[in-house]
Write a protein that binds this DNA or RNA. Structure first.
Lengths: 152, 152
DNA sequence: TAATTAAGTCCTACTTAAGGACTTAATATG
DNA sequence: CATATTAAGTCCTTAAGTAGGACTTAATTA
């Protein structure tokens, strides 16, 4: 059977990087799985429990993530046969996306409960956020940003 | 018929802001539509052409985006009946997510062609990027970041 | 006023997701 | 060591979402 990843790899041309990214993570579950694996939820059944996802879908998504080098397996303990799902650097590189989505919801959701999960500095334990910056690292306001396609 | 947005609004508890965000934009098309609307592609048929999305799906997604206050309609010109789809501030607030996804693909995709769309400063026309920063605005490396759930 | 276009709706076929039953090997327990 | 339990799946059926074409109607253009 042909997976999403196969489709991406055989596609000759994608004209925007978001498009390519969404081919992989543009679905209901992938980013949540990535988040959980980064959090350290790294066994099949634990992921299933944590996400309340169906087994068959979780199986497929994990296979795709592994094939795309976002997740790799390692034995539960040296020599064991059961596996853990671990984040690769490519997986950690999705943190800015995750953080910005969390920020977006916190800011714009009208849900009362804000006792949600947060992204924090491991050491200081203080919350973090994302920023759009220019080459010099200076923050740029949203209204000054343009999405440019090739020549325009 | 019950739309995604109805489902979100009636849902009593979501334990993570990404989960709530993905209920809305966690699909194949929504973020691409948002990107195009921010870019200024703002009429139904133009969007359809630009994205190569089916009419019925575009109709549904636009209705959801409008209901969620991410997009609003305005007449093509004063008094006209035909409408443009415009970005609200909540829509522009998705720019960090969009930028970080574009960055992620540029960095990790093995596609040859990098003559892709970019995010630039409207004035200087120089490319922009995202950063994860702490409260003082200092960049924090990915390895020092933790996703914390309530008490852990 | 007629022709064309823009923005849809509706239908059918196909693909992906949900959820439960079943399977098998790995680990843990007595 | 034998048995029980658990972890990590597969397989099946039903439901929901997506693709793509045909059709509709009002708005704009010629």
């Amino acid at each position: 059977m042909k997976t999403k990843v196969d489709t991406i790899l055989e596609k000759t041309q994608v004209n925007c990087p978001i498009e390519e990214a969404l081919n992989l993570i543009g679905d209901k579950w992938t980013l949540l799985i990535v988040r959980d694996i980064i959090r350290g939820v790294n066994r099949f059944d634990t992921l299933k429990e944590s996400l309340k996802i169906s087994r068959n879908v979780l199986t497929m998504r994990l296979a795709e993530l592994e094939k795309a080098d976002i997740v790799y397996k390692s034995p539960v303990k040296p020599g064991a046969k059961r596996m853990l799902y671990n984040p690769t650097p490519k997986c950690l590189a999705l943190l800015p996306t995750i953080v910005s989505l969390m920020e977006w919801t916190s800011q714009w959701s009208n849900t009362e409960d804000k006792t949600w999960s947060k992204v924090i500095d491991k050491e200081t334990r203080l919350p973090l956020r994302t920023q759009i910056v220019n080459q010099q690292g200076q923050a740029v306001p949203l209204t000054q940003i343009k999405i440019s396609f090739g020549k325009d």
